[in-house]
Nucleic acid binder design. Structure first.
Length: 148
DNA sequence: CTTCTAACA
DNA sequence: TGTTAGAA
């Protein structure tokens, strides 16, 4: 067993958390007109509530809206913001994968929080730690203690 | 009151 | 993109 899932166990499906267009509009500060337009362009996606024909957005798309808005404010064009958003999401997926497998636990070394990043060598004899000191991080390879 | 579509003084 | 009208 290893990885983030053991430290931050979550069984919730965050995409079950949905928001109406007005809520997204207020949260991210974009107009409902923009949200409908972005969806029409295929930049974001919504699901239609069964009975009503109202749009609802899941967390994944709320994240997209947030990123597109960010890049627009940075001065990018809508299409540029869309491209940048998808690239960012791709990177975020890689970061999650990395963290899920590399991150082991937060321990203590020299009285400081030390992030156990897993085995440093192929033979699994030493472990890489990222020791947190205020804003800085000191990396250190520590010989693994022999287990009985 | 909120959301939808369509259209443009 | 904003706004507005009329309907749901």
């Amino acid at each position: 067993m290893s990885g983030l899932k053991n430290v931050f166990p979550h069984k919730m499906d965050l995409n079950q958390l949905i928001f109406k267009i007005g809520e997204v509009s207020k949260m991210v500060n974009v107009s409902t007109r923009q949200l409908r337009y972005w969806e029409q362009k295929g930049y974001i996606e919504s699901i239609r509530d069964d009975n009503s024909s109202s749009r609802v957005f899941n967390m994944e798309n709320l994240n997209r809206v947030n990123l597109i808005k960010y890049y627009l404010d940075e001065g990018m064009t809508l299409n540029g913001a869309h491209v940048a958003t998808e690239e960012k999401i791709a990177k975020m997926r890689q970061i999650r994968l990395f963290m899920m497998h590399a991150f082991q636990d937060v321990e203590t070394i020299d009285g400081k929080p030390a992030v156990n990043l897993g085995y440093f060598d192929k033979n699994k004899e030493s472990i890489l730690y990222g020791i947190i000191d205020e804003q800085d991080i000191e990396y250190r390879v520590v010989e693994k203690k022999e287990e009985k």
